[in-house]
Structure formats: C-alpha cells, structure tokens
Design a binder for these strands. Structure first.
Length: 578
DNA sequence: GCCGTTTTCGGCCCGACTGTTTTCAGTCG
C-alpha cells in the first residue's frame, strides 16, 4: 500500500515553507511551496497513486512544477525529502511555535533563534522575564512586553470557531454598531462571508462619515481589548479570543473594500494579476487605470463594478477560493447556486423514539411550519443502544404510526425511514426484509471509527451495494475541532455511489458539515446526488440547514445537484423506486 | 519555485498599523 496521503505531502510542503521563511528565503519560493501545499491538500485523488501510475501527470497540476513533482515522488517513496531534513537540522521545528504569538513573525523568530538560541515557547518566556529581548536589533521594551503577553495567547490562537458561532458574534457586533452616528453601511467580509465551515476572525467593513465614532463604539463592546487602532482600521479581541477587524472606507470604495476583505487571499491574488495584465490596479479603494501620468479611478462603489472592469461576473462569495470560479466564469454565465428556499424536504431527523427531543407529531408540525413538502423520519437502529435505537419491531410500529399520520395530512408527506448502523464487522444493523419496506434509508458509521482505511472503506462500500440503502450519512464522521474524519477512501466511495445510483449526505450540523465543501464538489463531479440534511434532534434542529447550504454553495452545487430540492416522486424515480 | 498570446527570464497583489527607527522593516490580512 502507498505511504503518504495528500494531507501529509501538503504538511511537508507547508513545513518546508515555514522553515524557508525563517531562513529568509526568497518569498516567492516560499509562496510556491505554500501554493503547492494547498493544491496537493485539495487534490481530488491520491497523488501517491498518481506518482506510482503516471508521474508525468504531476507536473500537469497547476502549481506543481518539475521540482515539486520530484519532491512528491521522494515523499511518497521514502517518507521524506532531503531539503526538509536539511532544514530540520538547521532550525528546530519547535521554533515555529514562536510564530503563533501575535506580532511575532518569521524574521523576529529567526533573530530570537539565532541571537539568543531560543527554540521553544518556554525558553522565550524565560528570556522575556530576564529582559534579554529588548536589546536585540529591531526589538525594544514594548515588543518584549507584547511578546511576553502573547505567549499564553499562542496556545489558544489559531483556533477557528464554527461558522455558526461566528455568526452569533457577527450579528451582535453589527447590532452594536448600527446606531453609531454617521454610519451608512455595515458589511461583514472575510471567511465568514465566504461561508467557510470555520472562521478565524471577523472582518467588519463600514462606510461612515465619522470613523472615530465607529471605532469608539466598537471599543465599547463588552470586554474588548483594542489590539491596534489607526485612522481607518482597528483591530480588537473579544473576551473569547476572537479577533475582529473594523475598516472604515468612503462610499466610492465600498465595493472594492468589500471585494478585497472578502477574499480569499488566493482569489484576490489571481484577480490582481488579471488586473495588472490589463494595465489596471486593484486595491481596497478601487480599480485604477495605471498610466504614465498617474492612476485614475475607474470603479469601486460596488463589487459588481469591480469585477465588471475585468469582464468578470459578480462571484458569489462562497466560491471565491481560486478553485474553480475563474474557469466557471470563462465557460459562460455563472450557474445559480443552490439556496435554502430550494429545499423541499429534509431526509434525516430523529424523534423521541430514539435520541431526539421532539415527538413524531412535534417534528411533523415543525416541518409543516417550514413549508416542507416531505420529511423522512430516520431514527437510529438498535446497535446505537445509547440512543435507544430501534429494532425491526419498534421500527415497524413507528412506520404504522406514520401511515396513520399521513392519512390525516394533505400538505406534507412523512416518509418511513431509518438511519441504519453500518456494523463494525460489516453489514447493516437491520434485516433486509425490513429495510425493503422503508421509503428512505440512510446508512452510517458510528462505531469502530478507529479501524483501518481498508476496513472502514469496505464497510461503507458494503452498505452502498445494499439495494435498500438510499444514502450514506455524514460520510467521513468528522467533528470539527473535536474528531478527525475516519480513514476512508473517498474516491472508492464516490465510484461505488455513482455505480450503484446512491446519494451522499451533506450533514448540515455546524460541527459536522460532512461532506465538506471539497468532498461535495468531488461527489458532484462523479454525478452523485447530494442530500443536504439537518439531522435534526429537535424541532429547532431544522435551523442548521442554512449551514449546509453554505457548504453546498462553496462546492459549486446548483439546485439540480441537490436531491432534496426535488419533489418526492422525482426523488423516487432517481432512486429507481418510482 | 512556478509560469508563459510579454514564452525560458523576470516577473510574482497590495496597503494599514506598530515599533523602532530618522526613513523603514516586520507583521498581518
């Protein structure tokens, strides 16, 4: 079996980039490694396999040249690469911990390592206490104090929070700023606006006649610490550690600033490169024509204007990742991405029969209130004993209740479903003759998540081969910041799902969002219908669907790619059960 | 280190803020 996976290759490239940066290497060389790391991490197939089968294809990947291709070969065959070993010998990788301190970057880390022999955060703490930093060139008393204060922060820093949590802060902050005199516009930008599954900090953009008033007001938000403050830009930290940037711009720059601060960084680099090749310059103040006489403002009031100057469409923020959006724009008008209101039903939820907190009747009422045309009740099967999972008899009793309920309903169809456990030894937790009577069956792995890649993949492929299974729920089992995805050969899962005409779930729970955006895009490429599901455990549980929609949009999914935008009879036809 | 309708060298996105400087480097986004 092949040694290194894409994530490990990417980590090696990132480590090389970090260490080169500390060495003061050519920044573009550093960027090349980072870019290489990114494309490798996001690549849809195993590069170890590509390297073994058809190595010439490696250099065909954008951002991978001859040198990085050779390094991929070395990494997958030997587990390392000479350059990395040399760098490690010169700089202990623990020095990278120093750069997690806000305000301490590669240059200062290099000075600390070279001049004072500091290799760890503990050694740095001791050096600060002995006031050994302040006499270094480029350092001073203030820097020393700031670094000392930042050491404790270094541990918790870089922790990205769920998008749903960031949304709470975002709404509170906007509410807090709304009343400031002179504020004309407030917008949220950054990865929050792009709908990333996690958010590292919040970017708030305002148009205001009085920047001072806006900043004063933000400084008064409960418990904030002001990190930096200038004439147009301010950075604060909330008690939770979340950093918030406020930027005040004139109205004629609002679109340019919104575009700029929404990013992503990679998207902006491409955009600016395109502008430059056309004699234009883009910054947060606008698009400028560059002539020998100087610069002339040509656009900036709206994002649409900014993109328009380059003949580009207004990209939905969710796809501004420099993954596929520029190619998409080149191929014609942008497709309309799926929206929350496109969903006609929800096909994964629980009731008090197992671990849900709403009764069947309550869940049905909540679904009707939302205007759904159909829902599937998918309680756990018996293996999930902690959740009081259903055996065949209890499940059939629930289905009988659903039959009776359906007889009274005209506007909503309740589907007889189940979330059947994929057992550790393979196979499903309920008998086929029972599953055959269901309208909708989601199969999922809950136990044995530490099994080998081969075992877990085989279990899921087994479920996909079962004619009674409709979809695989949360296909990688990840819990963001809490549990890594289990080892599974997603390529094999995609191929099998496509071959057997099965669906894959994008679980909208903000801690899951699994499939993630990249995997959902890959599944779409295989022609697999994606089901966006709430996995609701209460009547409020449907509210998470919007998080799933954001990830689906990031994957470039249209309503046509999402199974539960369709009417139920059409879903049945697609499943071959019509 | 990558890349090419400026094609194998010479580019590679751009600006705000801070602290240590006295004209700017480093960091950050």
């Amino acid at each position: 079996m092949i040694g290194m996976n894409n994530a490990q290759i990417a980590d090696a490239f990132d480590l090389i980039a970090d260490l080169l940066e500390i060495q003061g290497a050519n920044p573009f060389r550093v960027r090349a490694y980072r870019r290489g790391a990114r494309v490798v991490r996001e690549w849809h197939e195993s590069l170890a396999r590509v390297a073994a089968d058809d190595p010439a294809r490696l250099t065909a990947i954008e951002g991978i040249g001859r040198d990085l291709a050779d390094k991929i070969q070395a990494l997958v065959s030997t587990g390392s690469v000479p350059l990395l070993e040399e760098l490690r010998a010169q700089i202990p990788p623990s020095v990278l911990d120093l750069m997690r301190i806000p305000g301490l970057g590669p240059k200062k880390a290099a000075v600390l390592q070279r001049e004072l022999g500091i290799n760890t955060l503990d050694e740095l703490r001791a050096a600060c206490q002995a006031h050994r930093l302040r006499d270094l060139k480029g350092f001073g008393a203030k820097t020393e104090t700031a670094i000392a204060a930042g050491i404790d922060l270094a541990q918790s820093a870089n922790e990205r929070i769920y998008w749903s949590a960031a949304d709470q802060y975002a709404q509170e902050l906007v509410e807090h700023l709304r009343s400031v005199p002179g504020i004309e516009k407030i917008a949220l930008a950054g990865s929050y606006r792009r709908g990333r599954d996690t958010v590292g900090d919040l970017d708030i953009l305002t148009v205001s006649s009085d920047a001072t008033a806006a900043m004063d007001q933000l400084a008064q938000f409960d418990g904030v610490e002001v990190v930096a403050r200038g004439g147009t830009k301010m950075t604060i930290r909330l008690p939770s550690g979340l950093q918030v940037d406020l930027r005040v711009v004139p109205a004629e720059s609002f679109g340019a600033a919104l575009q700029y601060f929404t990013g992503s960084k990679e998207h902006n680099i491409v955009l600016r490169g395109l502008a430059k090749s056309r004699g234009l310059k883009i910054n947060e103040y606008g698009v400028f024509e560059v002539t020998p006489e100087g610069e002339k403002y040509v656009a900036g009031r709206t994002e649409e204007d900014v993109y328009g100057t380059l003949g580009l469409p207004l990209f939905p923020p969710e796809i501004r990742e420099s993954r596929f959006e520029f190619a998409l724009a080149g191929a014609g008008p942008l497709p309309r991405l799926v929206e929350l209101t496109d969903l006609r039903g929800d096909l994964h939820m629980h009731t008090t029969a197992t671990d849900g907190r709403g009764t069947l009747a309550e869940m049905v009422a909540a679904a009707r209130a939302r205007g759904f045309a159909y829902i599937a009740i998918t309680d756990h099967s018996k293996r999930v004993s902690m959740a009081n999972g259903l055996d065949e008899a209890r499940l059939r009793a629930q289905w009988a209740e659903i039959d009776r309920l359906n007889a009274t309903l005209t506007d909503l169809r309740v589907l007889k479903g189940v979330e059947v456990d994929i057992l550790e030894r393979g196979g499903l937790d309920l008998a086929d003759d029972c599953l055959r009577e269901a309208d909708w069956v989601v199969a999922s792995v809950h136990y044995g998540q530490n099994q080998s890649r081969e075992q877990i993949t085989a279990r899921i492929l087994g479920a996909l081969e079962n004619p009674n299974v409709s979809a695989i729920a949360h296909p990688t089992g990840r819990l963001i910041n809490r549990r890594a995805p289990y080892e599974v050969d997603l390529e094999a899962v995609f191929k099998a799902a496509a071959a057997h005409g099965k669906c894959l779930e994008l679980n909208a729970n903000p801690a899951r969002l699994d499939l993630d955006d990249l995997a959902a895009a890959a599944a779409k490429a295989h022609g697999i219908p994606i089901v966006i599901s709430s996995d609701a455990h209460s009547v409020d549980g449907f509210n998470v669907l919007r998080y799933g929609i954001l990830q689906a949009r990031r994957a470039g999914l249209t309503a046509g790619d999402v199974l539960n935008t369709r009417a139920w009879p059409e879903v049945q036809r697609l499943l071959g059960r019509g």
